[in-house]
Design a protein around this nucleic acid. Sequence first.
DNA 1: ATGAACATCTGGTCTATACCAGAAAAATCT
DNA 2: AGATTTTTCTGGTATAGACCAGATGTTCAT
Lengths: 245, 245
Amino acid sequence: MYRNTKPNGTTAPRFRRIVDHLRAEIIAGRLPEHAALPSERAVAGQHGVSRMTARRALEAMEAEGLAYSAERKGRFVSPPRLNYPVSSMANFLTDAEKNGVELEVQVIATGERTADAALAGILCVPEGEALSEVTRLFLNGGHATFLETEYVLAGLYADLLQAHDAATKPLAEQRFSPFGHDADIVIRMRPLSAEEAELLGLSPNQAGIEAEQLVRDETGQAFCFSRQIWRGELAQFSARAIVNR
Amino acid sequence: MYRNTKPNGTTAPRFRRIVDHLRAEIIAGRLPEHAALPSERAVAGQHGVSRMTARRALEAMEAEGLAYSAERKGRFVSPPRLNYPVSSMANFLTDAEKNGVELEVQVIATGERTADAALAGILCVPEGEALSEVTRLFLNGGHATFLETEYVLAGLYADLLQAHDAATKPLAEQRFSPFGHDADIVIRMRPLSAEEAELLGLSPNQAGIEAEQLVRDETGQAFCFSRQIWRGELAQFSARAIVNR
DNA sequence: ATGAACATCTGGTCTATACCAGAAAAATCT
DNA sequence: AGATTTTTCTGGTATAGACCAGATGTTCAT
């Protein structure tokens, strides 16, 4: 029988107490990165609550970005965020390596396509223009972190899209180093699609952070449009903006 | 008795069907902005599921950013996103007005304080330096959208912090127009604290988007640090970044 | 040693029911 | 008509069970 006893007047949901406890365990380091959290049934037993309540607590841990769940395997402690420096994205991969981050790239899909109305508008090319498309999955220390789909003008950079199966640094340097240019970027939070969730190892309907970039060369011509979707708890974007008026 | 019948082999969770149905209602415009969604009990009855399942569906709507819930009032259709153009933040309020957005500002708290280690480090001033602090709530058409806490060097801008109780445009223009300068910005997703959730009209443990800005004057001296926390489904940040190497 | 069969554990989904307290509307009393 | 009480409705929290199917580990026969 359910009775929400509150002796001192304060109604603190039970699952919140469990969250506080688990959070303390993680922060204290007793549960290191990628360590398994107790299962829903174990939490329920330890704290004397029903499984659904234990589940709420563990889901709250996920919402806080402190844990992630793997279906039928368990829940685990999240690794720290990966910073994405927007203003020096040309060096993202090399910078990450310098900071001791082991970034790995998996090519999910490559292909040729023509620009539909939306892409044509973004890239300022006529509709039907030939584009190359790549989708890559970025893993940080083996842990899926974000997905990127990139569209580039086919003529210019077709060769680049073939080379790098899992190569890390050469890619960005080859592509960007000859240019000094600017980029428009848009960042928002949105739910993951089923496929995205699958690739990122998440359950669908969870929220992630989407970042869209439109990169221009020094003549002002847009030549590359990319759309990233990050695990929200792992993403951080930093930039230096010029405040104009 | 629970029986997850799947005649054609595909296991589509029931609550997902309900989500699809509600999403279609919204997109078709049958449920306009801020209109009430059917209650948990109503959804349960209409779709012949238990209330907990109906609840899951409605919570998924929230996760998608299509709805927001008001405790003991109901769930409602979310308004569209508000774009925050990082590169022209000096004109954020006036720009928003030009685009037909009715932005309203409520001052939640103001005060004087001294810089602790963290703030001193960020603003590059000695620890103990006098700062002015303001917390404001921004509403879009009466709908709470984001909270901002701003720290400025007390000597320079103390007067500015008093003036604007609910004033919209004068604030930013007065403060920024004499300067041409740059700003560092950091964007990430994080859960809301209990107080933030309260002010934004959300339940705690939900995720929002945090944006931190460090603004410098033309001499390079940091003079203003602000931290915003947005309702995730309403936030969008756009910027033009210079890609350096 | 290797591989197959089995049992166990996991998160995901679902039911049916219950109590709580605030919001809102309806009924009632001035 | 206006203020007050009462009822209804709402989301939030909680229980105690259940089935599913994939992942994992153990046992056992080969």
